[in-house]
């Protein structure tokens, strides 16, 4: 029975490989994606409109800033939904309730390594977040790496140890602050006379040109996204691993 399931796996894989020969070549200027007017507009105008060297970051946080803002809101809503479903669900005694207090001591070697590695990881998260203008990276990636550092603390010691540093109310407050930063930058540019999320109007507040104003506004937006993603990552882990009990856990 187990072997029969290999047949669809291999047939689908063969189909995918067969379809791969229709891919355009790497960096082909005649591929459909390169020929659409949108991409040529982005390629021509990103360097003019903003000072951001990485085109993807400019498209993500500036041209499609509205989209990214609601992506962040979706992440926030996911966190709230998990919280709303799991909170209190574990406390109801249903039948024989197993106590989750385990005797597993935190391992000495693992805790020492985590103690060494966590500051490096957090620094790397900030690097990824701030370096998103030049290389791949940005708010989502930096936030995930930041959340992974807190998850690592929770794994090496236990969940209580991590919740002392990042309690659940604090998580939700930080997540909300991230969205407020994002939307606040949008509203600020609206009050300055532009449209919602039209960062160029921030030049009146910052002592820089219009292009550099966009650069700094994109950085601020990425920081907001990073706040939300990092705290929601940890809140999801804390809730899911302990079934909403916030005690014991993995």
């Amino acid at each position: 029975m187990k072997w029969i399931s290999l047949i669809p796996v291999f047939s689908v894989g063969a189909l995918l490989l067969f379809a791969a020969k229709d891919f355009p070549e790497w960096g082909d200027p005649h591929s459909p994606a390169s020929q659409s007017p949108v991409s040529s507009h982005f390629i021509n105008n990103t360097g003019v409109d903003t000072e951001v060297p990485n085109m993807v970051t400019a498209v993500l946080a500036d041209y499609r800033g509205f989209d990214t803002m609601f992506e962040t809101v979706v992440v926030f809503i996911a966190g709230i939904a998990v919280l709303a479903i799991l909170k209190g669900s574990g406390r109801r005694p249903r039948g024989r309730h197993r106590s989750y207090k385990l005797e597993a001591e935190p391992d000495l070697i693992v805790t020492y390594t985590v103690r060494l590695v966590v500051p490096v990881i957090q620094l790397f998260a900030f690097y990824v977040l701030a370096h998103g203008h030049v290389s791949p990276g940005g708010g989502f990636q930096g936030g995930v790496v930041m959340g992974a550092s807190f998850i690592l603390i929770a794994l090496a010691w236990d969940l209580d140890h991590a919740l002392v540093r990042m309690s659940l109310p604090r998580c939700m407050v930080i997540a909300a602050v991230g969205i407020i930063i994002y939307a606040g930058i949008g509203f600020l540019s609206m009050f300055m006379g532009g449209e919602f999320l039209d960062y160029a109007e921030l030049e009146r507040l910052l002592p820089v040109s219009r292009e550099m104003a966009r650069y700094y506004a994109i950085l601020g937006v990425e920081i907001g996204v990073g706040f939300t993603v990092a705290s929601i990552m940890f809140a999801l882990y804390a809730n899911l691993s302990s079934e909403g009990r916030l005690k014991g856990g993995l």
Binding site: K21, F23, P24, E25
Partner: peptide, 8 residues
Amino acid sequence: MMSWLTSF
């Protein structure tokens, strides 16, 4: 597949 090979 050819395209991959040529890029390689």
